[in-house]
Design a protein around this nucleic acid. Sequence first.
DNA 1: TCCTATGTTGTATG
DNA 2: ACATACAACATAGG
Length: 268
Amino acid sequence: MPELPEVELYRRVWSEGEGEKVLAVVARNENSRVFRAIDPQVLQRELKGRRFVNSEARGKQLLFRFGERGDRWLGIHLGMSGELRVEPTKFTPGKHDHLIFRQRVRSLVFGDQRRFGKLQFAVGPEPPAWWAKLPPDLLSAEFTSERLAAFCRRRQRMALKPLLLMQEQFPGIGNWMADEILWRARLAPQTLAGALDRAEIRRLYREIRFVVRESVKLIDANWEYPKSWLFSHRWRDGGICPRCGSRLTRAIVGGRRTCWCPVDQPSK
DNA sequence: TCCTATGTTGTATG
DNA sequence: ACATACAACATAGG
């Protein structure tokens, strides 16, 4: 169930194998939904014997580059339950392990229990179109508060919670990050995007950037964050706001589980 | 048994 | 055509 920082963590896991060849490509459960966009046999033919060059994460999307010319591109979206692991060269794959790259001293494994994940592949000198057309990174100069304001105007009837989950504008933001951002910006999740004034847009912008930047910096191996964040208090009923001590509210907003502080984030 | 799940997408509706 | 809402996808765990 990875969001931006967890996806980046997974990228780093596989990066241990960068610079080394893929000796064998093992695709299992070939009818699995994770292969809906590619033919696993093409993957085997095109990547066997190729060097794993490098990798990049943008939002929840991952891109892995292979080949002496760097012209083989593997895209991975982890969906709800995807994971990337490193295992010994010879290990017995589990039921949910769909793709394995065997290298000299390790195996790179893609597993996905619920199979909402998606693999993509392309050959060419440049990153493929589905990668190049991804929206600007939230920490880039392209993501400005003016851009955020324009999006809020266009989606003025949408509540902030589902708004922040729209990957076309907020790549990498997921359910917990959206709650964290709104809590820090002191905005109720049901607030309509079109109702924000200039100062509120500014706050939302600042906290989007803060949560993206700091979560990547602070995430640990257990996927945990400081207790001063909303993060660890939002999962179960009865949680307490780590800022003001009030009882947190949990409800479905925009179809998704949402947690907020009714005192710090009052409805208008 | 029933309910839940950190995501995306296709379809229906206005 | 555009914006919005929601079921569907597949599976395991509490």
